[in-house]
Design a protein around this nucleic acid. Structure first.
Ligand SMILES: [Zn+2]
Ligand SMILES: [Zn+2]
Ligand SMILES: [Zn+2]
Ligand SMILES: [Zn+2]
Lengths: 133, 133
DNA sequence: ATCTTCATGACAACGATTCTCATTCCCGAG
DNA sequence: CTCGGGAATGAGAATCGTTGTCATGAAGAT
């Protein structure tokens, strides 16, 4: 009864290394398909399914952050660990990690005031960066 | 050259009235398909395509708020006008509209500090409400 | 080297959303 | 009121991101 019935190992395969390497190359958020392209462009061949699976595993392990496009598409990015939010350029995708202790407290307080427990939140800032002026 | 080339009318049809009515009945965020079901349950027959189109039109006109599930599904809700955010129950969908002037200022400031212009943001708080304790 | 098990990938399947287009029916001009 | 043009509808096909299937390949323990 050790709960989840999913593998516990995490083997280091050529494919996983390729995806990780691609994620290091890029600075902004990318879709799974874009990452698949990047991996390919770097000369590594990895199946699209595997890219999706790897990205999901990395997200579960908090090795990448995920955010959703207005259209619902998932975008991934290698981020520093720890809770933070993003300031993202709408045009070029350039991303800055930001922290806001005040916001964190505000959100928790609002939730508590209304009797909500087990609180979490999402917060992203979008704009146009200087180079995209 | 009056810009957009999309219809300018907005005819009041039975279908649009039905969707609007359904939106009044519900308090939390619902998917287009759920709203389609609710409309049907109320005795009005409206095509799914029309529900989607109507909801989109209402969103464009700021008559409903839209938010995205973790899985990327769009949820709609009739909201008060004006900028605000939501505290949403993960289980039952109960929603409370919240405002946070401090957060608004913080977000704009962060963006400005990094040279970003034309700033916007998304912010939602999730939790489990009392009745879902 | 061998074996167990997880990982891979080509392809099918899925589900939400959008598109197509023939038909319906608002609604304002006459 | 009645017509006619054009917006609105809806059934079904098409899209597209994502997930499932399953036979085959390859880590890694022994
Ligand atoms: Zn930019
Ligand atoms: Zn936070
Ligand atoms: Zn609840
Ligand atoms: Zn705000």
């Amino acid at each position: 009864m050790t709960s989840t019935d999913r593998p516990v190992s995490a083997r280091t395969t050529r494919q996983r290394r390729a995806v990780s390497a691609a994620l290091v190359d890029i600075t902004g958020f990318c879709s799974a398909q874009e990452i698949h392209e990047i991996v390919k462009r770097r000369g590594d061949a990895v199946g699209l399914s595997t890219v999706y699976r790897t990205l999901q595993a990395m997200a579960d392990a908090d090795e990448v952050d995920v955010l959703r496009t207005d259209e619902g598409e998932a975008l991934y990015r290698r981020c520093s660990s720890g809770h933070h939010h993003h300031l993202v350029c709408r045009d070029c995708g350039r991303t800055v990690e930001v922290e806001g202790p005040t916001v964190e407290r505000w959100a928790d307080r609002v939730a508590a005031d209304h009797g909500f427990a087990d609180v979490s939140h999402t917060l992203e800032i979008f704009g146009r960066c200087e180079s995209c002026g």
